[in-house]
Every structure is written in C-alpha cells, then in structure tokens.
C-alpha cells in the first residue's frame, strides 16, 4: 500500500492505495466519482479524461500514486452548484450527445482545448478532440458545441 494525498474537485483526500490502482478506479471506486467513465482497454477513447494540475490526461493511463501531491478535476467538479459550466451548457444546447458515454471526457478535453486556445478554428477543434472517440454523434454537434462555448464567457469556470 502507498499513502497518497490528492485534491479532487476542490476537496483534499488522503488514502492508502495499491500502487497498481489506476487513477480512474481511484476516482470511481474510492471517491465515488462515477461521472468519469472507462470506455476502452487501450487508452484510445478518451472517455476517462480528467484534468491533472489543469491539463487533460487519460485517467485510465495514470496510476493513482502518480497523482500524489497533485490536483485532479473531474466532470463532477466543473459546474458551480446548479449552474452548468459553459461547455456543459453548450453541449446541452447543441445536442452534442446521444448516449452520453463519451460526454464527460469530451467536455473535459474541450475545456482543456479552450483554455489553450479560446477561439479555435473548426479544424483546431477537430484536431484538439482527436483523442476522444464518439460512437454516436458523428462529431458535428460536438464541434458546434465547442464553437458555441468558445463564443461564451469561460471566465469564472474552474480551470
């Protein structure tokens, strides 16, 4: 067992974990943050995307021990109370999801992308989301949602 201290969605946690535990399993099974999902076995799909110290990572491809001393933000930590994050709002407005399985990862990656470049081109958005797979939407509405969010005020959003 290894002792880790992590800040997740603003709250501090200290836990003993097996070194082999993946960050995504720590988030889901220890902290109950089941908003972050697992979609593949190969680190390809991006459904498990969270932010580690403010940058997007695939939490199925990070060990919980590697997050020791760092800060994690999940899809559960981006709204303020009842008020959705502008990217969440834009996904809802633009009908950017069907089954919704890819959505937590898509939104976390879209936020990272907009933090880096607040007004990306359509191509920039498609490129920035290349590590996130969606089996339902055909991506068009996802791209539209990110374009819409780019026009909206991202300030006040966490990270």
């Amino acid at each position: 067992m290894a002792r880790i201290s992590v800040k997740v969605d603003g709250a501090s946690y200290s836990d003993d974990v097996e070194p082999r535990m993946l960050l995504v399993h720590y988030l889901r099974e220890r902290l109950g943050k089941v908003g972050t999902v697992v979609g593949c076995d190969t680190s390809n799909c991006g459904a498990c995307t969270v932010h580690l110290d403010g940058r997007s990572v695939k939490s199925c491809n990070v060990l919980a021990v590697q997050a020791d001393g760092h800060e994690v933000t999940t899809i559960e930590g981006i709204s303020s109370g009842e008020e959705l994050h502008p990217v969440q709002e834009a996904f809802r407005e633009c009908h950017a999801l069907q089954c919704g399985y890819c959505t937590p990862g898509m939104i976390m990656q879209a936020i990272d992308l907009l933090n880096e470049n607040p007004s990306p081109s359509e191509e920039g958005i498609r490129h920035g989301l290349e590590g996130n797979l969606c089996r339902c939407t055909g991506y068009h509405n996802i791209v539209k949602a990110v374009q819409k969010a780019a026009g909206s005020d991202l300030e006040g959003a966490q990270q």
């Binding site: 680190s43 991006g46 995307t49 580690l52 940058r55 997007s56 990572v57 695939k58 491809n61 990070v62 990656q109 990272d112 992308l113 920035g128 290349e130 590590g131 996130n132």
Partner: peptide, 9 residues
Amino acid sequence: IADPQIRHR
C-alpha cells in the same frame, strides 16, 4: 504524436 492528453504525459 497521439493526442493532447497523451502529449501532456
């Protein structure tokens, strides 16, 4: 290489 998430790590 790969995608942004993987390039971050």
